[in-house]
Computed example of a mutant assay.
Amino acid sequence: MRDPDPYLAAALRCPSPLAEGFDDAWVAGLWAQDGVERGSVKAFLATHQRIPGLGNGVLQDICWQARVHPRRAVLTLDAAARAGLIAAARSTLAAMVAGGGRDTERDLRGAPVDVPGRCGVRVRWLPGVRRGRGDGRWPYRTRAITLVAMTGTRRDGLPATRTRRREEILDAALALFDERGIGPVTTNHVAERAGISAGNLYYWFSGKPAILRALVERWQAESTFPVALAGGDPVAMLRALAHVLGEQAEVTGRYGALARELVPLLRADPDLADVYRTSYEARMAALGTAVAVLVENGLLRPAEPPLDILDMVIGGWVLAELGPGYLQAVGAADRVRAVLVAPLLAQLTDRGRAALEVRA
């Protein structure tokens, strides 16, 4: 009997890059192998079957997504670049798996044929800058290969089924985070709950941090205050503000797991912090404008010095974001709505109380 193919034998000893075993510890071992630091990125990815499933057909796409030149020396990569390279490898392979593999079908004239459910390869030339070989920049007229999922649908947007599947994954993750806490939940758990393979999940999200960022974006989008707060009739503005504060209890309740662990999450993930900060700044601007108009029109009492309007707005924001999670944790979830509206009611003037039909 012949000895097995050495490449096959090596691949069988390694976990799939789409499996849970291909974790941070395993990847750290790959970077630490002899000769890796002295070689190029392409050599790291394509030789010795370090990562099963990688070959010349996908290397360019991986490097392009990671914004790393294939000839760049590994020793010049920092931790962020290495993590980005591995994430690009996983997402590229996941896209191929989700698309049914590489498309090699051609018609009688040799032209590629779009086969629904398969994954094709599109080659394009990109303008670049002439640079030396070792400076890590893309050379002039670099060829980049982009994987294209061929679903038989229009290419100018995602089909509704794809959008729905993404939301199903986020719903599954949110339910698990609420049941078990964010820390213990892995991408494999999320995939199992969503009813898909772990590899298919990586077609949608590069990992758990990406899922968390998407959930925070969705939470903030559902928390957006209506346009009426930024202008218009002051009484309508006051009523809209009171309504939103009451409804915010339900919104934050749906994202209770995120609210309970929000501060540690923001400290651990700078990208997530940027996403959240954008929402924070937009809402501060809208709320600040609304409160100033309500004070000017005699519906709200002004802040007592040394406090100002910004202090009032920030206090309301913190209470709306963190209060529901705290009250749920201490068994007072039934008081969330009243607690969120209480600061607004405390600042009402007589005219404001009349507008909201609040008894003194």
Rank of each mutant, 00 (worst) to 15 (best):
L241C: 00
E250H: 09
D156L: 11
P234D: 03
I211Y: 00
V190D: 02
V244R: 10
V330Y: 06
A43F: 04
A98P: 12
P324A: 01
L108V: 14
A346N: 14
A236I: 10
G246L: 04
G136N: 09
V275Q: 14
P324R: 01
W64K: 12
S223G: 08
G256K: 15
V115D: 11
P306Q: 03
A354L: 05
L229W: 06
A80I: 09
R106F: 12
R359H: 09
R82F: 14
G117V: 05
P4W: 10
L299S: 07
G21V: 06
V275Y: 02
V123T: 13
A236Q: 15
A268G: 14
T142P: 10
A95G: 05
T187G: 14
A79N: 15
E217Y: 00
W125A: 02
V336P: 03
E357F: 02
A144D: 07
G352S: 05
R143A: 11
D274W: 07
A111K: 04
I86K: 02
V313G: 00
Y280H: 15
R351P: 02
G323A: 10
V148M: 15
G55Q: 01
L229E: 05
K208H: 09
V339H: 06
S223Q: 06
R180I: 03
A303K: 07
S279F: 10
H189L: 13
Q49F: 01
R277H: 02
A338Q: 06
